[in-house]
């Protein structure tokens, strides 16, 4: 056999499959006239091909696997559905428990300040509020001589008529008499500011000298409270 005989095998394959062009067929015939192997391939291949085609035509086997395949698909889908429903169920259950806990006030029992309220000391009155979920500062003027503070947490009990939004626009401050410094200090001292409570975030308001803009409350209530306390003690 010649070195490039593989090319003639490919040509023989094309002839057997009925794909050879006229030029390819002619080239193969020229080669087969001098090559015994290719001549045999050319003579014998149609026999083998015919045997395969006859076998295919005579097949009577008709398997039915549709129900198996679709059953497998349905099983997979059911399993995915169960997983999804399970996850949703857990989410709903957790949400219900959480909301019930909030609504019933159970959560507030774990706070040293409960659900907030009014605190008065001397001439200063202070209201503690809890708001949920996003901590937001809120100021409420409770009495003409009072300053107010806020801490994030839960139940909102402020009387709307006297609530002034802390952010973002500056609000002209009502003319409130500035309370004696000692009062504010007492109020702060009356709160358990060392305890693990959100009420530590206390801002004293209004105190023009404590706040950069009169009538507004700085975003960082803790800083303000600290600054105020320092001012008060001065």
């Amino acid at each position: 056999m010649k070195g490039d005989h593989g090319r003639f095998e490919a040509l023989a394959g094309a002839v057997v499959l009925g794909e050879a062009t006229a030029a390819e067929r002619a080239a193969f015939d020229v080669h087969a006239s001098t090559c015994a192997t290719c001549a045999e391939d050319l003579a014998g291949a149609p026999l083998a091909r015919a045997a395969i085609e006859r076998a295919g035509a005579a097949e009577t086997w008709r398997p039915s696997i549709g129900s198996l395949v679709l059953g497998r698909i349905r099983d997979g889908r059911r399993s995915r559905f169960r997983t999804t429903i399970g996850a949703l169920g857990w989410a709903v259950a957790v949400s219900i428990v959480f909301n019930v806990a909030l609504a019933s006030g159970i959560a507030s029992r774990f706070s040293p300040l409960g659900s907030g309220g009014d605190v008065t000391s001397g001439q200063t009155a202070m209201r503690i509020e809890f708001e949920s979920p996003a901590p937001r500062l809120r100021a409420a003027v409770v009495s003409p001589r009072a300053a107010v503070a806020v801490a994030p947490r839960r139940a909102r009990t402020v009387r709307p008529a006297v609530v002034a939004r802390a952010t973002p626009r500056p609000v002209s401050h009502p003319s409130v008499p500035v309370e004696p410094a000692d009062d504010a200090a007492n109020v702060l001292a009356g709160l358990d500011l060392d305890g693990p409570s959100d009420a530590k975030h206390v801002a004293i308001e209004p105190r023009p000298r404590c706040s950069p803009a009169a009538g507004s409350i700085a975003a960082d209530a803790t800083d303000d409270a600290t600054r105020c306390a320092q001012n008060v003690r001065r």
Binding site: E9, A10, G13, T37, G44, L47
Partner: peptide, 18 residues
């Protein structure tokens, strides 16, 4: 071409076996 070549060789084997 690789397919055709394999078909040719396979047919040779089949012819012999059959």
């Amino acid at each position: 071409d690789a397919v055709r070549q394999r078909v040719c060789r396979a047919m040779r084997t089949l012819r012999t076996s059959l």
